[in-house]
Design a protein around this nucleic acid. Structure first.
Lengths: 317, 317
DNA sequence: CCATCAAGCGATGATTTGCTCATTCGCTGA
DNA sequence: TCAGCGAATGAGCAAATCATCGCTTGATGG
């Protein structure tokens, strides 16, 4: 026996086992407690931990008719390639509802056999997506960041999305080591002139697939909440017609990029309009609707993963 | 609005939506009832239906250390290619515990880009596997049955495994339209001489991957339970050393096929020993251990998906 | 060596869920 | 038209689950 038992079970092992028995085996927590020789409370905690640690993945294997209808309506209206509509989750954060669908789409791309360069933006939706991705081996692809990873406070937390996903799927990753938005155009240009930055930017521009979130420019703008722009800058860009933002680059309600405000100092790579490769927007929520519409209109994105109510609102316009 | 609402929600749509809100959204049944404007009991029934219909798939995203250890031990001992060990589910049917792992392996194969011929056996374990596969598009592969699909009572229920999986993944399928076991060798040979049967058999023999269950020859033998062999035939073959069976073909404890009993009348294609392509056995349960060991020993199978206690028992021998 | 503190544990009460049963609804055939 | 019948519904209840609380235990630092 000791020949086989190479290692003591880690806490995660225990949690995984309890979660397995509970969710797959359909056992009650009492039964699990008896099986593993622990108290029910402990069993309960292990099951909860398994869920909290993301050890248990739940997916819906049925396309709800209403969502399929919305997908084809969106596809027709905006000439989309990929389009996915998830059922909404009542009042909960819409990010939660689109994360599994977004993860499934990313996994689909990662499983393609030919080596691809996959460009990723950042934001809550993308973060939700990578948290929902199942570990798999995609070492033949390259993951490249579209956006700088240095926040105004100097932290590199926005690095997270690409780092986490590359960790999960064992793919090499190329973060863009520049400020998301530099204090001055000159400083931005100085960063851009650096060899390594240039190479990552070229890689990002040549990406075979692009995944981005879409930011709104209303008072709850992610750029503002995360401290990338000041309220004055936000107001200035709104006065100039700003309706939304992709990878930090602000555009108007027709999806045309502006030449004012932070757009003169944004460090990352801009997702060009009418890209001939998939550029998939991952976004949901009432306040994002104008931004999503604008991005779709000028084909900054040519694919969309959203939720039911957002899809309905977009189509109602 | 009516422009969008093309179709009324089906009962499955409702179940899927309730299951989504419950499992993905983490809402209580009361909340779901309020959200959908139905009674709590109805919400409860929809959630249960979603689970029963297999609309909700749960997978464990963590390899438990003990199982990994067993996998490498099995790989070393029997020189296996693919090997997967799932945690056991207490007293429950071991088929339930291996079905997700088996499904994941089949999905991996189905997602390979080059067109493959995939041969499938039948049995409870295979049936569990196909029930757990997620729908995906694998139209470039061919699914071929190793085993006849006509049961002694004339029903074609054994057709189920390959039909269901081909339905789920939209792959063309080639059932073998012969009795599993014919009453006489002559009749078996007559079937074999038929052109269509010959072509399916040739296809099966040339398969790039093989998935089979492993049957025991003890009193709970699947062949006996399903009425393919009589007790007298079972006893006769046991007297001749029968230890197990793959795709209806009986072998002894060294994994050598016998020349007696029903083996002279079995209709399907025999999985040859030491195949140079993957031949993956999907089997778990204490009573199957001798059969699995025998099949591994002579390399009728060169891959194994089983559960923890079965793996331990195999290695203890 | 002892005081302090944090982490984990088991118990308890509140909430949520699964199940049974009587009833109703809708359909079919006389 | 209406009786018969099966499926679906909702009420009620027992079981299961979850959240909170005080306690133990073991580590840390004075």
């Amino acid at each position: 026996m000791s020949r086989i038992e190479h290692s003591d079970p880690t806490p995660q092992d225990d949690a995984a086992r309890a979660g397995w028995l509970y969710y797959v085996g359909g056992m009650t927590q009492d039964q699990i407690a008896a099986e593993l020789g622990i108290s029910r409370q402990r069993a309960q905690r292990l099951v909860a931990k398994a869920m909290a640690d993301g050890l248990i993945h739940v997916r819906l294997n049925h396309r709800i008719g209403a969502c399929l209808d919305l997908e084809s309506a969106l596809r027709d209206r905006f000439g989309l390639g990929r389009c996915r509509v998830s059922p909404s989750l009542g009042g909960a954060d819409p990010v939660l509802s689109i994360a599994p669908a977004a993860a499934a789409e990313l996994e689909r791309v990662l499983r393609l056999p030919e080596p691809l360069t996959i460009a990723l933006g950042t934001g809550r939706a993308l973060r939700g997506m990578v948290d929902a991705v199942a570990p798999l081996d995609a070492a033949h692809h390259r993951l490249v960041s579209l956006i700088g990873n240095i926040a105004p406070d100097g932290s590199a937390s926005f690095f997270d999305v690409i780092m986490r996903v590359s960790d999960k799927v064992r793919a090499p990753h190329y973060p863009m080591l520049v400020p998301v938005i530099s204090p001055t155009s000159a400083e931005r240009d100085a960063f851009r002139a650096l060899g390594p930055v240039k190479r990552v930017a070229d890689l990002a521009r040549s990406a075979d697939v692009v995944f981005v979130g879409v930011g709104q420019m209303s008072d709850d703008a992610p750029l503002l909440a995360d401290g990338f722009v000041t309220r004055a800058e936000l107001d200035q860009m709104r006065a100039a017609g700003a309706a939304g933002e992709v990878a930090g680059w602000v555009f108007d309600s027709d999806g045309q990029y502006l030449d004012v405000g932070t757009n003169t100092r944004t460090g990352g790579v801009r997702v060009e309009q009418k890209l001939d490769r998939p550029a998939i927007g991952i976004a949901a929520g009432a306040s994002k609707v104008p931004a999503i519409c604008a991005a779709l209109k000028s084909r900054i994105i040519n694919g969309l993963i959203t939720d039911e109510v957002t899809a309905r609102t977009i189509l109602a316009l």
